[in-house]
């Protein structure tokens, strides 16, 4: 128990004293999760829109596959990505193993179903009146598409934040693909795993507090954006 309290105290100390290894882990985490989030948005938004907007055969089957992908364990994705980007894997020549790029690929796979599913749900939830309203105001097809997307911007923002939270807090992919290399691919979560393995529970708690603080900051800025 006592290590929780000392962990919180230490978190404040680590951040305030500018502890370089802590800040390196924070920077790596932010870098790689932002990149993964943006890539998963770039891929997931159009897919989610197509699934949510159109009715087609096999849509329900596709949704089931997508929902299953939501439950993919990160270590499994990590293993899968490792198999591909390992030097002997089909993508070995890109030298992605033990790099942030490799982690980003894995995390993108992790976040893609989240973004796609949430976008699809958001698009499906669009008021059917919206299209009729836009038509009756003289909107053409392109106007309708653009306006619909802008109308659901909060839903899409929520998808982005959910994806961000998911990739920021995962440990399996970062550990497996990134290798937990200090100063390079050590994220907050792999650092927690390491500290815990070393029995430095208080350090682990401290890093956990840092992670929660960042997550809180992200959500806070989102609710600020919403008010704008």
């Amino acid at each position: 128990m006592e290590f929780i309290i000392s962990g919180v105290v230490q978190a404040i100390f680590l951040l305030a004293s500018g502890d370089s290894s802590t800040w390196s882990a924070v920077a790596v985490t932010l870098k790689v999760s932002t990149c993964s989030m943006l890539m998963s948005m770039a891929a997931g938004l159009p897919c989610g829109f197509l699934i949510g907007y159109f009715d087609f055969r096999g849509k329900r089957a596709l949704r089931t596959v997508l929902d299953t992908m939501l439950a993919l364990p990160t270590v499994f994705i990590g293993l899968l990505v490792y198999a591909f980007i390992s030097n002997q894997g089909p993508l070995g020549e890109f030298n992605l193993l033990f790099s942030l790029g490799g982690i980003a690929v894995g995390q993108t796979l992790l976040a893609f179903p989240i973004v796609t599913a949430l976008t699809a749900v958001t698009i499906e939830a669009i008021d059917p009146q919206l299209k009729l309203t836009l038509i009756s105001l003289g909107a053409g097809k392109k106007n309708i598409l653009a306006t619909c997307l802008w109308e659901v911007r909060f839903g899409i923002l929520a998808a982005a934040v959910t994806a961000y939270g998911r990739v920021m807090t995962e440990v399996g992919i970062s550990m497996m693909v990134g290798g937990n290399i200090k100063w390079h691919t050590r994220t907050i979560t792999t650092a927690i795993a390491l500290e815990t393995g070393k029995g430095m529970f208080a350090n682990g708690i401290a890093l956990g507090v840092v992670l929660i603080t960042i997550a809180f900051g992200v959500n806070l800025s989102l609710s600020f954006l919403r008010k704008q």
Partner: peptide, 14 residues
């Protein structure tokens, strides 16, 4: 497009 406009029962505001 530019001549007919409908006000639906429950208005949808952007």
């Amino acid at each position: 497009r530019f001549e007919i406009s409908l006000l639906t029962q429950k208005p949808y505001l952007l």
